[in-house]
């Protein structure tokens, strides 16, 4: 699923590895989330949000049209 994680991570000056260490996952997982190839659990989403000082909807929100397009 498309998300704004990469922009948010860069804005707080964190590397993928640093973010991964903060939330307790591997760098590959962070990379896959950024690419939209892995859907994290809500718990991990929240941990990421706290790490990059953003809210859930700022990082992981899709408008209905985008969501419909992403499904197709």
């Amino acid at each position: 699923m498309k998300n704004q994680l990469k922009i948010a991570r860069i804005s707080v000056d964190l590397t993928q590895q640093q973010l991964a260490d903060k939330v307790g996952v591997t760098r590959q997982t962070v990379s896959l989330i950024e690419k939209g190839k892995y859907n994290p659990t809500l718990k991990l989403c929240l941990q990421i949000c706290y790490a990059v000082n953003k809210t859930l909807d700022e990082l992981f929100w899709l408008e209905k049209e985008e969501w419909e397009n992403a499904k197709n």
Binding site: G24, V25, Q28, T29
Partner: peptide, 10 residues
């Protein structure tokens, strides 16, 4: 061996 904490790897 380290315990796996990454949900994707679990």
């Amino acid at each position: 061996m380290q315990k796996i904490k990454d949900e994707r790897l679990i």
